[in-house]
Amino acid sequence: MSSIGTGYDLSVSTYSPDGRLFQVEYAGKAVEAAGVAIGLRCSDGVVLGVERILHSKLLVKGANRRIQSLDDSIGLASAGLLADGVHLADRGRDEVWNFRETYNAPIPTQILADRLSMYVQAYTAYSSVRPFGVSSLVAGVDKTGPRLFCIEPSGVFYGYRGYAVGKGAVLARTELEKAVGKETEEGGVALTCREGVLEVARIIHLVHDDNKDKEFELEMTWISPESNMKHAVVPADLLAEADAKGKAALEEGMEED
């Protein structure tokens, strides 16, 4: 970041001499500071999980959700500036409404991710706005099956089998690669949603370890056969089980060290 302070990093409509858009990169920094959000595509659905960091103990338990619904079978988990995540979800619901009004059919997950990414891109192209300070995981099940996408502040989006954004995302992605890697091995099968919930919870606990000073709540949703292929919160008993197992796995790992 040698260009810091040279004036080429003050507006999103200004390139630096070597062709970078620093304001977009800075927006990415806001993402890296936020609690991790993880998505995992499973054999029978998709699982989303976030580490909801509690900045005060006066916060109501279980409230202040970070994962939002865009359609009956599409969820969105953002990491970054909270208010930007809500803005993007609002826009997502508009797209859902608009698509259904035009085609009388539910919006495919990929089309939604595409439209949202174009919206995000527009905020990287004008000096009169700033980029979105969020990376967002879009999870959905449609005719093409379970899908997972991630939209970055730059407006690019890619499909994933598993992905993580936010603080500790790099470690989380390594763990996801291990989990997803098994399915590509000889005779390997993809995790089911139920297994996916446990896996995502485990990884969230694992990556949280780095900043133990702040408490967090585990928040998880899924689109699975058990939720009638609708985007819904993971049932309380399964969430509690996943939370406990994630915690236990972490302690086990520490003993090994």
Binding site: G5, D9, A27, K29, E32, G133
Partner: peptide, 17 residues
């Protein structure tokens, strides 16, 4: 600093001053 004069400029740390 140079990043706090308007509301659409992120600081290098990703903050909005």
């Amino acid at each position: 600093n140079s990043y706090d004069s308007d509301n659409v400029t992120f600081s290098p740390q990703g903050k909005l001053h």
